[in-house]
């Protein structure tokens, strides 16, 4: 069971990173909207993962993407923030005790409404951090916000697409 979860996540990691750095990297609209689907990996990590491990995985995921994007540290920073927001969000909205046998927060398990909310919040904070550090001048906040909103929209669209393709209705 445990080994299954790890294997699942490794496969998901390889697939999402591959998709991100070889395919989605080349997609974007006027430098305003560029998708970062790879964060779905961090979103779909199991509920019961310890905080330290979550941060470590998020950091290394970001670092892996950075290596391909030639922006060392940028995605790592954004993913660290993402991990923090994920911990806060889950602690506020989910009773961990009630999900002992629910391994990870996917669309099929948590329902559409919860998942879309979860995805929007986490994606927004990730993208905001990412574009803020990329621009590095907070005087251009309007531009940062615009890029964040457009890119979040794109990313969430792809996330929902991915979730619907691999939709597996799990019955409790």
């Amino acid at each position: 069971m445990m080994g299954g979860i790890i294997l699942n996540n490794i496969i998901r990691f390889v697939l999402l990173i591959g998709l991100q750095v070889f395919f989605l990297k080349n997609i974007g609209f006027y430098n305003l909207s560029s998708p970062f689907l790879y964060i779905l990996f961090i979103l779909l990590l199991p509920f019961k993962i310890p905080n330290g491990l979550l941060f470590l995985l998020a950091f290394f995921t970001g670092l892996t993407v950075d290596v391909f994007y030639d922006t060392l540290g940028l995605n790592a920073a954004a993913c660290s923030v993402l991990a923090f927001v994920r911990i806060i969000f889950i602690s506020v909205t989910v009773q961990k005790e009630g999900f002992d046998n629910e391994p990870f927060p996917s669309l099929g398990i948590m329902g559409f409404r919860w998942f879309i909310f979860y995805a929007i919040i986490l994606t927004f904070f990730h993208h905001l951090t990412l574009f803020s550090f990329e621009t590095f001048y907070f005087s251009e906040f309007g531009y940062i916000l615009l890029r964040t909103i457009f890119s979040s929209f794109f990313t969430i669209l792809l996330m929902l697409l991915a979730e619907f393709i691999f939709f597996r209705k799990k019955l409790r």
């Binding site: 905080n51 330290g52 941060f55 998020a58 950091f59 970001g62 670092l63 950075d66 922006t71 060392l72 540290g73 940028l74 790592a76 920073a77 660290s80 923030v81 991990a83 923090f84 911990i87 806060i88 550090f133 590095f136």
Partner: peptide, 24 residues
């Protein structure tokens, strides 16, 4: 711990960012 982990990893990635990217 989540907050302190955030600080730790954020600082780590910012150090990487500033040291390895000429623009930043």
């Amino acid at each position: 711990n989540a907050f302190f982990l955030l600080i730790f990893f954020l600082v780590l990635s910012l150090i990487l960012l500033v040291n390895n990217n000429s623009y930043q």
